[in-house]
């Protein structure tokens, strides 16, 4: 509708393109060259001959195992979230029980608890439970800290189901379990895919809980692998950056094929 192009914003967006594009260019080219080539010709030059050795090095450094651990953690966190959140959201939206508003308030309060604030007691609880340095010790807290936002997203989606539909099923004499299965779950698919993506992102990118709750190589997840690699062999920039690139590949795939769901899951970061 506007007749004149927005020059200022257009100019700003070009600067931003440069700020985003340059690091991505350096990362991409660095992963395809040898360490000595990177050190001598500098990060901005174009690589003279290409190599995939860096990626192979990552795998011989245990990246494959980190990757598998992260997949296990991510799938488990998503499974837990899918198991407990939909019934909870259904109860919050439909139940007339008096304590339900208290329950909802507990989860809203949970939105304000930063994971950083509880790492010390979490370390205590997980150690006492014998789960220190165990993948389960990462999975349980990570899933718990996904719950408030996932609940908020899903109750929002479920509130959009019109009361007429519930009444129609009530006429049929359907039990809550049947209403849940045949009405609530099918009609809140959008919300469900958002919480799956959100929980998966939290688990895949999670760093703090793995950092303080695990220590051995056998339980290392990708983010911790990147951190360790950086502290131990930070000079091998090409291998480091190829690990960074590998760590984002699964998310990139989701981005390419389910952009909308991913973006909604990302926005879930703010509980909106």
């Amino acid at each position: 509708m506007r007749h004149r192009p927005n020059y200022l914003a257009g100019f700003g967006s070009l600067i931003w393109l440069f700020l985003v594009g340059l690091p991505l260019y350096v990362m991409l080219t660095a992963t395809l060259r040898t360490q000595s080539d990177y050190s001598t010709s500098g990060p901005l030059s174009f690589p003279t001959h290409l190599t995939l050795q860096n990626y192979l090095d990552d795998f011989s450094n245990g990246f494959g195992r980190d990757f598998l651990n992260t997949i296990v953690v991510t799938l488990s966190v998503v499974a837990i979230v899918l198991l407990v959140v939909p019934p909870l959201a259904y109860a919050i939206v439909r139940s007339r029980h008096r304590t339900m508003s208290t329950v909802f308030r507990i989860f809203l309060l949970g939105l304000a608890i930063p994971a950083q604030a509880v790492i010390v007691p979490m370390f205590y609880v997980i150690s006492k439970a014998g789960l220190y340095d165990n993948l389960l010790g990462i999975i349980l807290p990570t899933a718990a800290f996904c719950l408030p936002i996932c609940t908020l997203i899903l109750t929002g989606a479920m509130r959009d189901i019109t009361p007429d539909l519930y009444e129609a099923m009530a006429v049929d004499g359907a039990s809550p379990a049947r209403v849940f299965r045949q009405l609530v779950v099918p009609l809140s698919k959008g919300g469900l895919s958002t919480i799956v993506v959100f929980a998966a992102l939290q688990a895949w990118n999670g760093f703090l809980f793995p950092l303080v709750l695990t220590q051995s190589d056998s339980t290392r997840v990708i983010t911790l692998g990147l951190f360790n690699f950086q502290t131990e062999h930070g000079v091998d920039v090409p291998a480091l950056l190829s690990a960074v690139l590998l760590s984002m590949l699964p998310i990139l795939v989701v981005y390419l094929f389910a952009r909308r769901a991913l973006v909604r899951g990302l926005m879930g970061v703010g509980g909106k």
């Binding site: 019934p87 109860a91 919050i92």
Partner: peptide, 14 residues
């Protein structure tokens, strides 16, 4: 057809 409190218990406990 309204769900009871039981539906919220697993998530809340966890």
């Amino acid at each position: 057809t309204r769900p009871g409190l039981a539906w919220a218990v697993p998530a809340t406990l966890f």
